[in-house]
Computed example of a mutant assay.
Amino acid sequence: MTPIRRSLPLLGLAAASALVLAGCASGSAAGDEGKLSVVASTNVYGQIAEEIGGGLVEVTSIVTNESQDPHSFEASARDQLTISKADLIIENGGGYDAFVDALIESSGSEAPVITAVEHSHDWPENDGHAEESADDDTHDDTHDDTKDDDAHEDGADHDHDHDHVEGFNEHVWYDPHTIVHVAEEIAEELSELDPGNAATYAANVETFAAGIEELESSLADVAAAHGGAQAFATEPVPGYLLAAAGLEDVTPAAFSEAVEEGQDVPPATLLESLKVIDSGEVRVVITNAQTAGAETAQIVGEADGRGIPTVAFSETLPEDQTYLSWMQANIEALKDALDA
């Protein structure tokens, strides 16, 4: 997989979709089965939707494997057809999966859209999270996504202007606290679409939230044992998880930004980064399993030479994993590296 990090246009999509969509009425793609159709940009959000919707929903994830990079994914006419029939759409936002916004616009979909970044404490437009008390273990904080009240009712009112925001880490699925709010909104939207099964959706999100609490407990254990330890992340992908684990990310910003954008790391920045590794203070190096480059390989080689453990994280859900089991495995891998 190449490390190119730019959202590409939907080349030829309009012309191709005219053929695919001809004679196809919009509505639920799973309507014949009586299930709600949920479309997610990646299998990360798709799996979370499956946890909340259970057997009452039919989930389609557009990006599903490690060879597909949401930053540069080229959508097809088939993807547009899928979006056009969705009852609910889930995207990451923040410029990460901009192809979803293009598909919504080109398909004319009016389905409600859940945008995960809007649930992050760090999202620039989100000032609605109230500070939680130290003993609050229910995640029932005051939460306002700064959306118009009508946004849930009509996808056409949803603001799809989700370009990359300078200084904001859009990889919010590595933040369990953000994800529990995304799951809550999924349950709310499904309940509005299917009021008769609202109790089932509420019970499912409660179970999911309990799993999130276990993740946060594991992260707290890592922070208690290794808080303040230095970590070097070749890309900002796992930034939220590192912060929740109490680690200090000492990666030069120019290094991780260049790698994420698929650009060459400036020689001075590479030299600075190698000095950070050689300092003897870095306890773990984190890489992105879905990208590779000469500079990343050089950092890993330097870390190996100094006996510094390297852990690879990914952007899509591995096969046969749930979101919760995947995050727990990531936390355990991080803990094992720090314990080494």
Score class of each variant (00 low, 15 high):
P236H: 04
T146P: 02
E235G: 02
A134I: 15
L215A: 13
S191A: 10
Q230G: 06
H164T: 07
A229T: 14
E153I: 02
T200V: 15
S218K: 15
N204K: 11
G196T: 10
D140C: 03
E189S: 07
A156Y: 08
D140A: 09
D194Y: 02
L241Y: 00
V165I: 14
N204W: 05
T142L: 10
D157R: 15
S191V: 07
D145Y: 06
W173T: 02
I212M: 03
H160G: 12
H160I: 12
A231T: 11
S191Y: 07
V180A: 01
H152T: 08
A225I: 13
E184Y: 05
F232I: 10
P195W: 09
F168N: 09
F168M: 09
T207Y: 06
D161G: 08
H162M: 13
Y174M: 07
S133E: 15
V172F: 00
A202L: 09
T178H: 00
A244I: 03
A233C: 04
A187M: 03
H158Y: 13
G196D: 12
D144H: 12
Y240Q: 03
E185C: 09
H139R: 11
P236E: 03
E184G: 02
H171S: 07
D159Y: 04
H164F: 08
A134R: 01
N197I: 05
E184M: 06
D136N: 15
D144M: 08
Y174F: 14
D161F: 08
E184C: 02
